[in-house]
Design a protein around this nucleic acid. Structure first.
Lengths: 368, 368
DNA sequence: ATGAAAGCGCTAACAT
DNA sequence: ATGTTAGCGCTTTCAT
């Protein structure tokens, strides 16, 4: 039944470690060593090999060592598909992210990948254009749970239902850039980001401040802009200032959007002397517009961004830095921990921000 | 033997399509539908379901349709692990790349991911720091062939041996940014890039031209800098010019490297009036250095980069554009084709480049 | 055109 | 501490 029609048992002499010893059976290709090969070569059962190699308890130290040696000499690696099927775990972490190539997301991915690899997980990447597409993935039809043990959601809102759906299917969840109740989520204090920006600008003596926000067409990730906005308003209020609704323009988190938003702001009857752009990329676009208007950043008008993009220092952009790769890493680490059965932090895991003053912010122009 | 100790057969009435009908057996969780569920609900064997769903021949149209309907209504999706184990194919494409977060690589990944997803492949990402690490992966110990049907190598040299090792293990290969004999590889004509840069600068009347190259510590991807270098020299020679070895500095493909390289060039006794930086990022660093020296790009000194990084237009950098995401997509497409058994292009697949003139290049200063 | 059955290479009870 | 064995859910000959 286990043995095929020939009645011979396949165990070799237990000292037979040499990988070149070829069974009369399959001698076609340089066939991969299986757990059975290791077992017979080590003179133990496959179960023991399995235990020994996965460092499960109840294996004699001497046995464990011998098995490990044999496995190495046979260049044995368990077949992922087989163990997935048998164990029901995939050894895979999946990250769901919009715009794979954008600065922010690629850094998150880099951080998450490093941690996943180190923890021995395969790292799957799925680009999701819209949040609708994301919901579809998180919900039924595409069976995420067969492909992955955990997913990292980057700047994608997951409803409580979606999160619960994942949980019920045994998939762990962690998010970065948005908060899902009951799951580890890494993020900066976006409210504080807004406050810091406001305090910095008003502290420089600016009274008329503008905001380039990031509300785009896709309502994906509405939380971040909303919080930064609220924080900015609060920061102004702290210092007895207000945000004129006319001085708020949306820039879609891109260079072009930033450019247009800045143009819009400068076309106001009473334009701002200082502007807070919610991302460095939008700030870059804004700088282009200022250049076109021959306005000197930091002198004629102040501009502060968020991110500390590699490029910010090239144009001397004052910004509020965040550690993006580290956020991806933290999320992956939380995921690994929760998959290992550890209790996951249900409160948001904070990631630090820091004001970095460069050249694009300066004292308010005297003439007023 | 197939049935467990109880002798009951598990087939339901063939009209039973309702997913809520619970066997007396496993009624624990909302168990996923298996191929058996579909088979019994459709009143056919699992083999037929398997054939029908994968569009294999020898299935009656009516049967195929019925199976498809039942599968949909049961929300059935084959378990990847099971089919991998049984079929020996993984349905996975893996991309091996250094520096996940850098501009170039993240764009390649984005392109490759889109194509992979569209073709129905899972997309695995592995960050490899050094080329040694890459070789290790491509060689024996970590069994890539169990995890993936094909790999995309980004700017990582694969030796013929490594490529052959992959082939013998049934893993398809495609590369971008480097050429491996006998495998599809997508790349720009880096020699032409150098020529274009040289012609542009000399065409503007520059006689003393410098080069910021990218040879770093890790000899990973030596081909690109080497070819661009050679092309640059050739382009100069075309117009009776030479490259002074003193005007060549290495910048490691980073902003800081570019900055230092430019500083080095400008400290020469007879500094260049025009510089070709092999990447936009190095050019950005170079611009910072020029700013520090109060030299106006495009007027006091000309600078041209390569890539057309999103940011290039922000600083009006003249550059030679390449379509990076498209390269990743082309590579993935070639991989998909070769895995489907198509004959793969063994000649390099060219990706276009284009000179984009902006503000950082201009006529050579008159005073000379 | 369809079905029966033998694995694919592991893991996880359950013995011992 | 170790061995036996029954699956995991598919794919794939081989029959029919």
């Amino acid at each position: 039944m286990d043995e095929t029609t020939n009645g011979t048992t396949r165990h070799r002499a237990s000292s037979t470690v040499d990988a070149t010893t070829s069974d009369l059976a399959t001698a076609r290709r340089p066939r991969r060593a299986t757990i059975e090969d290791v077992a017979s070569a080590a003179g133990v059962s496959v179960a023991t090999v399995s235990r020994a190699l996965r460092n499960l308890p109840n294996v004699a130290p001497s046995t464990r060592e011998r098995v490990a040696e044999v496995a190495t000499s046979l260049n044995y690696q368990p077949d992922p598909a087989a163990s997935r099927l048998a164990a029901g775990r995939t050894g895979t972490i999946t990250v769901l992210v919009p715009h794979l190539s954008s600065w922010y997301f690629s850094h998150v991915i880099a951080g998450a990948e490093a941690v996943s690899a180190e923890a021995g997980y395969d790292f799957l990447v799925i680009g999701v254009g819209t949040s609708a597409e994301c919901s579809r993935l998180l919900d039924e039809r595409y069976h995420l749970e067969r492909r992955t043990d955990g997913v990292v959601l980057v700047n994608m809102p997951a409803t409580d239902d979606e999160a619960e759906s994942l949980r019920s299917r045994g998939v762990a969840l962690a998010t970065v850039g948005s908060y899902t109740k009951g799951y580890p989520s890494v993020r900066v204090d976006d409210f504080a980001v807004g406050v810091i920006a406001a305090h910095h600008l008003v502290g420089l003596g600016h009274h008329r401040v503008g905001l380039i926000t990031g509300q785009g067409d896709d309502p994906m990730n509405f939380e971040v802009p909303q919080l930064r906005h609220a924080g900015f308003v609060q920061g102004l209020a702290d210092l007895q200032h207000q945000l004129d609704p006319d001085l708020v323009a949306s820039g879609d988190f891109g260079i072009d959007g930033g450019l247009e938003a800045m143009a819009h702001l400068m076309e106001q009857p009473d334009p701002p002397t200082a502007v807070f752009a919610m991302s460095d990329e939008m700030a870059f676009g804004a700088l282009m517009e200022l250049e076109r208007r021959a306005l000197r950043p930091g002198i004629d008008i102040s501009l502060i961004g968020v991110d500390d993009h590699e490029f910010a220092r090239v144009v001397a952009l004052t910004t509020i830095s965040q550690q993006v790769a580290s956020q991806g890493a933290l999320a992956a680490r939380a995921l690994v921990a929760s998959m290992a059965g550890a209790s996951t932090p249900t409160e948001p895991v904070p990631s630090p921000v820091e004001l970095i003053v460069r050249g694009t912010t300066g004292p308010a122009p005297a003439e007023h």
